[in-house]
Design a protein around this nucleic acid. Sequence first.
DNA 1: TGCGTCACG
DNA 2: GACGTACGTGACGCAG
Length: 918
Amino acid sequence: MSKQHLYLVDGSGYIFRAYHRLPPLTDPTGTPVGAVYGFTAMLWKLITELANAEAPTHLAVILDAGSITFRNDMYDQYKANRPPPPDDLIPQFPLIRDAVRAFSVPCIEQEGVEADDIIASYALAALAADFNVTIVSSDKDLMQLIQPGIDCLDTMKNARIDRAEVVAKFGVPPEQVGDVLALMGDSVDNVPGVRGVGPKTAAELIQAYGSVEGVIANIDAIKKPKLRETLAASIADARLSRELVRLKDDIPLAVPLADLTLRHPPHEPLAKFLAKHGFRALLSKLGREAEAANAIPVAADAPDRVPFVHADYETILDLAQLDAWIADATSCGIVAVDTETTSIDQCRASLLGISLATCAGRACYIPLNHVQGEGLLAEKLPQLAETDVIARLNPLFADPSVLKIGQNLKYDLIVLKRHGVPVLAPFDDTMLLSYALDAGRWNHGMDDLSTRHLGHTPIAFKDVTGGARGKWDFSQVGLREATDYAAEDADVTFRLHAGFKARLWREQVTQIYELVDRPLVPVIAQMEMHGIRVDRSALAGLSAAYEIEIARLEGEIHEIAGGPFTIGSPKQLGEVLFERMGLKSGKKSSKTGAWTTDVSELERLAGEGHAIATKVLDWRQHSKLKSTYTDALQAQINPDTDRVHTNYALAATSTGRLSSNDPNLQNIPIRTELGRRIRHAFVAAPGHVLMAADYNQIELRLVAHIADVPELKTVYAEGGDVHALTAQEVFGELTRDTRARAKTINFSIIYGISAFGLAQRLGIDRGEAARYIDLYFSRFPGIRNYMAETIAAAKEHGFVTTLFGRKAHVPLIFSKNMGERQFAERAAVNARVQGTAADIIKRAMVQMPGALTAAGLTGTKMLLQVHDELVFEVPDSEVSAATPVIRETMANAHRPLVDLSIPLGVEIGTGPSWGDAH
DNA sequence: TGCGTCACG
DNA sequence: GACGTACGTGACGCAG
């Protein structure tokens, strides 16, 4: 006969996790119930779905009764930093007690102690009574309790945590976890710990000395001087922390163990509770189909109410079927769309199929060009004709009353346009919604979003196409499998949309999404489709010239080095320079222990007169230019258009900037004459010129505005020289040299200044750099305030916002590690400025097509964006008319959303090539 | 795949 | 007084 098994649910911990993981659902009365739903579903699962050997015989939910406990007597700052629960979570606490009662499960809480203490007391009492115990929690404090007969269950990850897991996680067994936790401290609970001691150090110390007291007794034996000092200074904190994390395990049991017996969930109260809050999926699981059908479901669509069932996805093979889906989409007023193609290159990909979803769990795939067999033997499977399907879908795609949803819709927009779909509007993009909500917190790819927000990981593309190497093309995937994969993507997109859309207003990012990022999609799609003309033979000529130079330098380098080696291998180069040749003090070695051979190091050697260093630098420059630019760009020319089509990533950066890839056209050389030749290979089409329009010092202008520095604003208003002003203010005189140094100082402000960094850039010592910074701040006190306020805002919210309301999350601002935290502080300061500049140029791009059209400039095309620069291809006849339109559009791009107290300067140049347009 | 390096704003 | 040190990207070659 199997043992009795008590499950102790850590209610508080679970509620918070459910709240953050689930979308903001509301019940029919408008009460928020997302966390209640998550909690109820978890309890249901626990009671009904565990296999016999693990099934609970006894169950209790433990909650925190109040925020003041006996630990506050020990330390009044305990948990003092904890923010109050979010507004819409507060009304859910009583509902969770209702839920527990509806299951006829005891709900235990007690003033003056924490849920963890009650759990500890019950766990040990039950163990003594020969129960098995499972603690449903992922709280690290509770892991102290794990021992034979007691384990932890993380229901979110569906993972059991036993002794071995604890050892793997903490480096010590459960009975020593409390000692490790005490040394580490906990910033959330405000357990002081020992400064500078993280999980690794704490584990090492406890492994060596057994306990906090053991460490204290052996402080003198600790090798690292810094650690020894900190520990010696923190003995009181360490002892206090040890007591704070110690669980109180002898609380009298408020409800005797016998009363925790789990009875089969009584249907009536539970059904009533589920119906009241609209939890239809659970009602049907309870066998209450009728009530499920009648209940008003939770609003905001609970995406995880509906399971993912691949078999439910439909393959569309006849027109009547297709028409039914189109009718469904039209009556729903909303449809998720996804395309399957032969390539990730949107400008070359051809269409294989289209999937649609009209509801969570209701999705289909319309295969168009799937084949059976390979190569010449490939035979097209019976499917609907592409032209017929496109003709039927076009009215839906253009229907203003039907919202189209996509994930990275720019891709689909381009592919579909190339296959006869002129319009896809109105639309929402889940990738961009996620970006507006969570930029800087995580990536915005569909698989990650699905796993994170829906708790479901979609089928991986490479699993469908046969292994890592992609044995097959997606065209050869069978229709059933293709449907499982493709329809699931549309289904996931549909479900993600509901959750994101509900958060948009609440989290105040509607403007950035609706007026900046979303309208940019068709604009960028057009730019990518236009592409830019590249002179292939010019590139080939450069490649050949670089090749000769590389070969020559290679010979000379090997000669000096006394033998051949791979110059491109930093490892080998370092060994040659600093070991074989014995060059002096090539000290710097990094994490891998290898010699540093970067530009600054080689320049130092060159300055000391080592010819080999100069030659290696030269070799590096030539091989960089050849491999990354002249060779690679030739290969990127699209044979159909004879132009290069970059791909702009709209949700890749943490600050709101775009990024460019395949190929990256935002890092084409310009700073050196040698590299600049590559820019001359970017040319205008016959009868056109290239026009480059740059914002002048936009980020520094924004600093002047945001930090409200009167002197800087005046200089910008009067068209003066800001670097000259800075030179005058900081150095007291204006010379070529002081102006150059002032320019560096101004840049350092944008990046979040540090004396060390500035010293390195200026080649001066730290003290001097610190004096300049002090002087700068005393001259422009607004800047110091602005930086402090930005950092304070980041610490309060975890993000900073641009003038347009874009959020840039900086999660490391909460790091215990000082280096990481300072890094986050600099990133926060920079993100406001960099992000606002990104918003401005994005607004310019959104408004540009309309401005050009309104001026009758139908031949002028926007081709590229390089952060503060836009590149256009302009017919010769339109050059003089286009210049003022582009200038005005860019200079006024912030209006009417934002007011600026400085003007935005725009510099415009034209020429036959990009190199000539600057 | 991770690292070092270097191209850009 | 020590810590590590500018902000944001993408692509390449090497070596495990």
